[in-house]
Design a binder for these strands. Structure first.
Lengths: 161, 161
DNA sequence: CAAGATTGAGTAGTCAATCTTC
DNA sequence: GAAGATTGACTACTCAATCTTG
């Protein structure tokens, strides 16, 4: 066993800053979203995905894959949102195991009302504070991290088979 | 009401990348932490803060402030961790309203066992994928966002008074 | 048996109400 | 009344078990 390499000053500044921001920023955005539109961040993500899909409907597993959610999380979430009238479950004609999740008229109205305010918040607390160069670095960095995470997922799948 | 400015390509790439990474990365780190050390991310944060404090003990409100947690969240968390023997509540002699949270011997052993593996994960999925220049940009960017969030907190306080 | 999906149990976080002490 | 802290109710996420269809 080799000694673990602890983080040096530069690394710690980036990591602690990121961890700190992550908690604070999402708390603020979710709080505002709930206060202004009655939606959780999870509600918002589902509605955005559905509203961008053709016909306002997606296969449940596609929706889950798009958000990288566990299937049980999606199922619970859809149950709660259906109870509130934001989405509707529909049967899948081509595969009887599957199901569709569809945006209702009310769900569409809610996301259209919520989106402008949320985007303003994203600008206010993130985008407008950063230069174009910083935005590009962040995009590249997140892509690198996501690529590593994706690699390991496929590696795990390979081991399991 | 002016038209909301939606995000352009560069902005959307950074924001969606960040949001995507946020969910994936914390899920992976928390999953590994729980699997390898039996700790949630919240457990880990509490233990790290206590272990860095003189005497392994902090006033509850200081601990909450350090992590930017709501006081009720900290209280619930300490209750759960005390039940598991990781921390101990202690009375505060100088202010009878307050309380201390102290690391137990077991809590110290657990965090010392967990930290090396967690740091390795942080390197594996984040630090080692980024250049020093990228780390500096991220540190600056997170600092700018946190500064804006802090501004608004103090502004809210001013309004309330 | 694998894929798509649901359910229930257990754990975590938020909000509002409350309690005690300053 | 405000500060420090706790509690209970409610909502949300995870994991394991289950069910049905391919």
């Amino acid at each position: 066993m080799s000694e673990p390499r602890w983080l040096d000053d530069r690394e710690a500044r980036a990591w602690r800053g990121y961890e700190h921001m992550r908690g604070q920023l999402s708390a603020r955005l979710e709080h505002n979203l709930l206060r202004d539109a009655g939606l959780s961040g999870a509600d918002y993500a589902v509605l955005v995905n559905l509203s961008e899909a053709p016909g306002g409907r997606m296969r449940a597993f596609e929706l889950g894959r798009a958000m990288h959610w566990e299937k049980s999380r999606l199922s619970h979430q859809v149950t709660r949102m259906a109870r509130r009238g934001l989405v509707r479950r529909e049967v899948c004609p081509s595969d009887a195991r599957g199901s569709f999740v569809a945006l209702t008229d009310e769900g569409l109205a809610v996301i259209e009302a919520a989106a402008p305010g949320h985007v303003e918040d994203v600008r206010r607390y993130f985008i407008d504070l950063l230069t174009p160069a910083q935005l590009d670095v962040i995009a590249d960095a997140t892509a690198a991290v996501l690529a590593r995470l994706a690699e390991e997922d496929t590696a795990d799948d390979a081991c399991a088979s």
